[in-house]
Amino acid sequence: MSVLAVEVEKVLGTLKLAVRFQAAGGATALFGPSGAGKTSTVNMIAGLLRPDRGRIALDDTVLFDASAGIDVPPHRRRIGYVFQDGRLFPHLSVRQNLDYGRRMSGHPRDAGALDRIIALLDIGHLLERRPRMLSGGERQRIAIGRALLMRPRLLLLDEPLAALDAARKREILPYLVRLRDEAGVPIVYVSHIAAELARIATHVVCLNCGHVVATDGVDLLKDGDADAFA
C-alpha cells in the first residue's frame, strides 16, 4: 500500500534536486549526507517549498501537481512537521502550543487525544511552562506532541534529535519508537545518522546530491553514517 508518492524537481542554487520515492505506512527514513536535499524534500511535502516540476500525492489526495496547477497550501495539507529546532511558539505556554493545531483547524476539544499524547510523550508535568523554560529534549517532545495533536495524515520529522546531546538522544529515541508503533500515523524521518535511523526506520530512501541513490529496508544502513554514500 502506497501512502505517500513523491516525484519532484527543484533547482536550489547549485543543487539540482530530482527526488522520486514512495513511502508506505511505518517510518520511512530519508537518509543522506548534509546538503543532499533532505530538508528541501520534506519542505516540499509540507508545502513550505514549491517544486519546479512534479507531483506529490498523499493517499488519494493530490497535494501538488505542477502540470495540473494544483498546489494545496501548507495549512490545508494536514501534515504534521517536527522541525530540527522545535519551533515552539515562545509567547504561548506548552499547553497552548499543544492546542494550537486544534484551535487553528476549529476542531472540538478532545480531552482523550490530549491525554493519550501527554501519556505517550510523558509531558504532563510541563503543561504550564513556557518553551524557554524547557530542556532541548523536552522541547522536542512538545513539538512532536503538537504535531500529533493536529491529527496529521503524515508526520515529517526533520533531524528531530540533531540539536540534542547523546544523553538527550537516548531519552527521546524510545518515544519515537513508541510513536511509530502506537500513533498509527505514517512517518517520514530525516537524518544523516545511520544508528538513529536503524532504531526507527522500517524503510530507507538514500539521497545524495539531490538524487535518490537507493531504496530498501533498513539493511541499507549497515554501512554506517551517510558520509559513506558521499
Binding site: 509540507a46 501548507p74 495539507r77 494550537y100 487553528m104
Partner: peptide
C-alpha cells in the same frame, strides 16, 4: 511556517 503546517491560514 510552523504555524502554517499546524493548519493556520495566512
Amino acid at each position: 511556517d510552523a504555524a502554517a503546517t499546524l493548519g493556520a491560514n495566512r
